[in-house]
Design a protein around this nucleic acid. Structure first.
Lengths: 212, 212
DNA sequence: ACCTGAACACCGTTCAAGT
DNA sequence: ACCTGAACACCGTTCAAGT
């Protein structure tokens, strides 16, 4: 029993059974231990979640050397996105963090260093980091676009209802499908959407940097 | 006692005492009613939160006619941001929604209609809505950049510690301050940051639209 | 038929009692 | 000194009993 073991068990539990089942009581039971025993390795639940995020950041690709700032940032952020896909609970936990751990600061530092190596001014880096927002962590907030977990038939029913009441929303929701065989309402290519938004921002940053 | 009264009381309670104090039990007590009485007007807590979001969307400016798509979208989203500033709990609640209510769909519809009136293709509108992400709701996810609620002296202490361990993060965090008198670590002009990121995206959308 | 209190199945965390 | 079980102060929601 160490902090490391507790954190890894928490990540495994979240991967398997979802983040809702990561309670102090449940995690303790998973480890065959009394709930209060966890508080020896973690001062409270917030610190447990901080530690889980640290482990996930550890899965991000290290910064690539030699490439320009744009490719380096792009690749780094896309690798962060892969980590989010492996741990679907991670975006929700990351958003709920208020405290930056040393591991978080190291990651931010390495992104900043990449922009700096590309000749960006401190002021522009500041704006750029804000503009990227949660994209630095490999996800964006897709509010209300996330389809509810349901069977494909219920899904189709919900979509026809949507198409009837809000035809424009229905058309836009299905536009840009890259898989022609995809069922109606099955969802679009999230990888493509993510990269699209990222590239609009990175291209904008490049233009602003060249103007300065 | 009507659904309207329950929802307005919930919004008022969240404004005054924070979203954490909006529990079914607490809200019922605020209304001088037994907890189970709320379930007459709202089927569960999720629906209560849905209704609260609907009320906040009702505070967004109506679409402006006559202007181009870019100004119209920009003004609409900045007005959404003002609503978020009046109800600081709203971003957290909006992010947690999985279900789009009719009010939400109407709002999305009106944004889509604005892009369509500007001549955007359905495919481009699809990408553009994804790229905007939570910005359509007047906020972005500023993970780990939100300063913890603390007195200004504790704040300065935390910042000097940050500057010692991660000087680059410290410099970038304070770069681009627009108020020269602002205390170290007091935070930057959030209004400016938000508009900056929004404009990088809108400019990118304009360029892509003109190329097509 | 409607309303409502107690109860159920949970939380995170405190704290005193036991070893 | 260390560990731990019971207890505290909460949740959202169910459900049966009372009117």
């Amino acid at each position: 029993m160490s902090r490391e073991i507790v954190l890894r068990a928490a990540v495994a539990l979240a991967d398997d059974a979802g983040i809702d089942s990561v309670s102090m009581r449940n995690l303790a039971q998973e480890l065959g231990v009394v709930p209060m025993a966890l508080y020896k390795h973690v001062t409270n639940k917030e610190e447990l979640l901080d530690g889980m995020v640290d482990l996930i950041i550890g899965e991000f690709d290290p910064p690539t050397c030699g490439a320009g700032w744009k490719d380096a940032i792009r690749q780094r952020i896309l690798s962060a996105r892969q980590a989010m896909l492996r741990h679907r609970w991670a975006p929700e936990v990351i958003r709920s963090r208020t405290h930056a751990t040393p591991v978080v600061l190291d990651y931010l530092n390495s992104l900043i260093a990449t922009f700096r190596a590309g000749g960006f001014s401190a002021d522009l880096i500041h704006q750029v980091m804000h503009a990227l927002g949660s994209r630095t962590w490999g996800f964006t907030l897709e509010v209300f676009f996330t389809p509810p977990p349901a069977g494909p038939d219920l899904h189709t029913a919900l979509f026809s209802q949507l198409a009837a009441t809000h035809p424009d929303v229905g058309e836009i929701a299905t536009a840009g499908f890259h898989d022609e065989d995809s069922t109606v309402g099955q969802g679009c290519d999230e990888e493509f959407e993510f990269a699209f938004g990222l590239d609009v921002l990175l291209d904008g940053f490049e233009r602003l940097h060249q103007q300065a």
